[in-house]
Amino acid sequence: MSDMIREFIDSWFLFSNSYIAGWCIAAMLALIGVIVVARDQIFIGAAISQSATCGIALGLWLANAFALAEDSWWTSRAFHGVMSGTFAVLAALLTSFAGRSWRETHESITGWLFLFTGGASILLVAHTPHGLEEVHRLMASSIIGATMEDTIVLASALALSAFVLWRSYRPVLLVVTDPEMARANGLRVPLWEAGIAIGIGLLIGLALRVSGMTYTFACLVLPALIAKHMCREIRGVFLAAPPLALVASFLAFLLAHRYDAPPAQVTVVLLSLALAAVWLVRFARGMLSR
């Protein structure tokens, strides 16, 4: 164990930005993931992540189609971040509001969005040099390669989302769990819903560009699902999910470094196993109490 930690510390100089960015993403997404889990709209995370990937694919296609210089802003990480964020926000708004007036279920819209943006992402970059490779990297997830700027932006986003949720925890919870009651209490529910959708979209868009789809989706829903079974109140879930995500990603990065495995996938598997263990304990307790 001590060898593992020493080796990890030795690698800090090379990968510190990737590690810190990965932890910021884990904590930030775990926090807003509680809203997604409270709404029982788990798959929305996958659809928004896929849409953000499609935004980056469109950026790559534009650069190729208009033969933009490789060192121009249009080919930069910042431009990809803007595309990713914009598509993620649009997807979050679409999944929040579309379908109501034409009597379609939320799941149908989410499924359609996931399939459309998944297919479109590949089609857009099919004939783009390095484009297909980049989209495959995003879909598979890799946190290696995060820069100092990424780390600063993600740490700021984590601090801001924690502050906003701390200040408006109760109205957010009421809007998410009982919108009719929120309306009766005088809240402007469509505005709150739009704000929540934009927030979730922006944070997923920010995370996706750095960490890819699988890690983003996993950090969004798995820590909140685990914490849900460990806490007696939703306030507790908000408090427990980010530390859980941090501990899991820290352990995963240690293991990944030791066994030369992709850290994002190790995190996803660790969190998934933790959730399975929690379900098992819950099941066993239920059986014993009969």
Binding site: D40, R170, T177, E180, K228, E233, V237
Partner: peptide
Amino acid sequence: VPQRGEFKDTLPTTVREFVTLGLVG
């Protein structure tokens, strides 16, 4: 007071947390 609460059974909450949501606003 609505006909039914919309709070999902799959979410953990206590009577305290549920009732104090009424203080929103």
